[in-house]
Computed example of a mutant assay.
Amino acid sequence: MKLQFLDPLYAHPGPIASACLDTSRDVGDPDRAIELRLRSLRESLLAHDADEATVGALASAVGTDRDVAGRHGQALFAAHGSLLLAQCLPEPPARDSARFGMLPDVLALALQHAPDLPYAAVVLNRVHPAGPGRGDDEGEGDREGGLELELEHERGRWPISRVAPGPRGHRRVPVEGWPKEAEQLLAELVDGVETDGTEAIVPAGDPWAVNSLIRAAPRALQGRFVKLEHGRPRRPEPGRALLEDELAGLFAGRLPDHDRHLLDSYTGQRARHPEYVEGLAAAVGALQRGQARALFLNRPVRHTGHLWVGAAPTHLALSGEELSAFGLHYYWEEPAAGAALLRAAAGTQAELVVLPEEEVPLEDGVAVLLRYTGP
């Protein structure tokens, strides 16, 4: 996963106010609940010497995701009286957090972007022309009954698309016109593969329409279809992704092809030189040199210690003495190791790959893939 979405945060010097809070709408009087959470976060930031203008800028964005239904959260960042970034999170944080420091606390946000899997969801259902509701499932022999086929499709990047869906197409055609419409849809899906790297196409709904779509797929789409068990998918709630519940099951533990390739390369390097690629010390050393092609983190995160950092992304070390030996005169102890690692990764164009600890346990919960191996 590339980390360019964090660039707006690193374009501004600190200190930066960071907040992560639950803004779910599935509770009684959600606005009141969010107001109480905001009050607590505001008090925490002010107690840590954040200025009123910055806290006010951050507070103004809390709850602006009210158009998103269900459970979710927000990650917010502000500095020098201006809001830098506000993003909706697919899952609310385990606990609200607020921090005012030289580096933005981006770990929770980055983890909820991973694995950043590009996909397309397609829902096909037969409906009666006069009504907006979904019709009953009919067999192939009932296609000529004046029914229409309702088509919804959406491209996204899982899992952030759960609360930030991509463009959604919606149209209806007569059932007998479906073969021609399927050709147009397949052309749009091919375009998604070429432009967004779509890896998984998930069709659902009417079995006849789904099967005919897959049979007509060109070579560029072969092997990308992932069929769901037969069943009528429910309509998404406001602000939520098409087929969200179904995709959660399909994509659980799945890595994009590119990340899988990075993991395979890392496994080869670890077999030859584990001391250079696994563990916090190895990761810090590689990021110092701009040598890391990818940063691997275990989920759940285990590295909770401090690191020492300076003004540049590569100013990163296990101790202040190490930075002093490099000739730096301005550096500080950074209490959030994850924030320091991610700034270094983003600043050196390293990618992020998040791995379940039970599947790929890493020493200290962190590792790197090297761009090159030196002596």
Rank of each mutant, 00 (worst) to 15 (best):
Q4A: 14
V122D: 00
T198N: 03
A271L: 13
E152Y: 09
R371F: 03
Q74M: 12
A281Y: 06
A61I: 00
P104I: 12
P236C: 07
V309S: 11
P159L: 11
A47G: 15
D259C: 11
D96W: 08
A337G: 11
T314G: 07
A217I: 02
G327K: 09
E194M: 11
L41F: 03
C88P: 02
A325F: 10
Y331M: 04
M102P: 11
L255V: 03
A200K: 12
R37M: 07
L255T: 05
R234T: 13
G14V: 01
A294T: 06
I34Q: 10
D264Q: 14
L147P: 01
I214A: 11
R99W: 15
D65L: 02
L186Y: 10
G73W: 03
G268Y: 11
V175G: 01
W332K: 05
L185M: 06
P129G: 09
R224N: 10
L21W: 01
P13W: 00
L109V: 06
A209E: 03
A121N: 08
A53Y: 05
A325V: 10
A216V: 07
R219M: 11
A311C: 12
D105G: 08
A75T: 07
G279F: 03
L58Y: 04
L9C: 10
E154W: 01
E144M: 14
D206L: 11
A292Y: 07
A311I: 10
A121V: 02
A337D: 07
H329W: 09
A164C: 11
H128V: 10
V163S: 04
A33E: 14
V68N: 04
G101A: 14
G56F: 04
G290S: 06
R32G: 10
E144A: 15
G28W: 05
F5S: 07
V353Q: 05
E194Y: 08
W178I: 01
V175K: 00
D65W: 00
L307Q: 02
P335Y: 00
L355G: 04
L185P: 01
A252Y: 12
A209R: 11
L124I: 02
R95T: 13
A79H: 07
A94T: 14
L369Q: 08
A57K: 05
F251K: 08
